[in-house]
Design a protein around this nucleic acid. Sequence first.
DNA 1: CTTTTTACCATACATTTGTATGGTAAATTA
DNA 2: TAATTTACCATACAAATGTATGGTAAAAAG
Lengths: 211, 211
Amino acid sequence: MYGKKKMSIELTKIQKDILDFIIEKRSNNSIPPTLAEISERFGYKNRSTVQQHLNALEKKGYLKKTPNRSRSIEPVIEDKIFVPRPVLGEVAAGNPLVIYPDSIDSVELPSFVKIAATSFLLRVKGDSLKDAYIFNGDLVIVNTAVAIKNGSFVVAVLDDTAVIKRYMKFGEEIELRSENKEYKTIKINCNYEGLRLIGVAVGIYRIMDSN
Amino acid sequence: MYGKKKMSIELTKIQKDILDFIIEKRSNNSIPPTLAEISERFGYKNRSTVQQHLNALEKKGYLKKTPNRSRSIEPVIEDKIFVPRPVLGEVAAGNPLVIYPDSIDSVELPSFVKIAATSFLLRVKGDSLKDAYIFNGDLVIVNTAVAIKNGSFVVAVLDDTAVIKRYMKFGEEIELRSENKEYKTIKINCNYEGLRLIGVAVGIYRIMDSN
DNA sequence: CTTTTTACCATACATTTGTATGGTAAATTA
DNA sequence: TAATTTACCATACAAATGTATGGTAAAAAG
C-alpha cells in the first residue's frame, strides 16, 4: 500500500530540480520564472536547454503552460486544489513512536495552506492528547523557528522516538507532560544528550472527511 | 485616528479600478497581468492607455515595477508581508448565528498559512459539533470553489443566519444535520430561496495557545 | 554494436511585452 | 478664456520571451 494515484512518469534529477525551482518560486508567491531566468539560475548558456526540459516536464504531466504566454508555466498538482505535503513521521501523543528520517507519506493539503520551509507536518497517533482536543490522525504543524516557551506544545525526539507534549522547564529539569493523565510525565535533565527539541507545534490541521 | 502611514496621493476612479484588478490577480495567486491583458480587461484598444495609468500609479506610490521585465507590476502594500485574514463571521455549530456582511475580526495566522480568495475563515461558536471534533473557537476554512457532495460539511446561510452542518440531499429535499443529537436536523426544499449554500468546510485550523 | 535517451549548445524567428512619442477630446482648473 | 489634467487612441521600436530546428557528446538501453 503505497499510493500513487495517477501514474506519473519518472523524472530525471535535473527535471526534478527545475520543477522544484518553479514550484518554489510559485509557493513564494512570486511570479513564475521565464525560460531565461531558469537558464540563468542553472547556469545554462541559452534558453533552449530549459525549453527542452520544460517540454519533457509538460509531456510527463508535471507542468502546464499556455502557448506564447510569458511566465505561464504552472506546476500541475494532482487535484488542482490539493497539494501533497510530506509527513515526516508519526508522533505519539502517548507512547513514543518512531520518527522517520525521510517522509513516509504525503498528505493532500488544500493548496491555500502553505507551509514554510521552517515547518513540517507530523501526524498524531493515539488519543493521549484528546484532552487538548488533538486527535488521532490530526496533522500537527511544527515550526522549528519559533522559540520554545513554558507551556508550548513541543515536538521532541527522545532517543530516536518522537513525542508531542506540553513543555515545562524548571531550572535544569525539563518536564514533558501529557494532557492525558494515563500517560505519565517525562522528566529529563536538560543536558541529557538523547533529547532533542525539534520544534513547537504552532497549529493543528485536520482534513475533514465527507463520510 | 485614521491612519495614513505614507502620504499617498488620491487616485482617480479608473486608476483605482486598475489597481484593484492587479491586486485581485495577485491575491488569487495568479500571475500579474501584462499591459495587454489589462487593456483587454478594460476594453482599451491599445496598451498605451494602461501604460499611462500604470505610470501614474507608480508615481503616486501604489505600484512597483521592474523596467523591461514582463509581468513585474506589484502593488505596494502597506502592511509588508503579513496579511491578516478577515474572519467573516461566526458560524453556529448548533443554533444559527448571524453572519456578518463585512469582516468583524482579523485572526493572526502564522505567516506561512495563506488562504486563497476562494476561501474564507469562520470561527465556530458552540459545541454542537464536538462529536465531529470541532470545537468552540476553531477556525473553519470554507472553500467556495469546491463541489458540495452528500456528507460534506457545508456552510449555509438560512435567512441571513449561518450554520455549519453536514449536508445531505435526497431528491429535492436537503437535510442539514448536526453531529450532536441535541440539535435537530433542518429539512428544506432545495428550491427555497432563503437558503444559500456558501461553501464546503475543507478543513479546520486551530491556533494553539501556550497556556 | 547500434539505437535511444539525456543533457547540453547554437541560431533563427515570430510574438509578446514594455516603452517612447505624439495626438485628440472632454472635463477641470486657473 | 486659456491652461492643465484626465482619459483615451495610434504608432513605432527595442527588449524580452517563447518556440522551432538542428547539432554534439556522453550515458543508457536494446
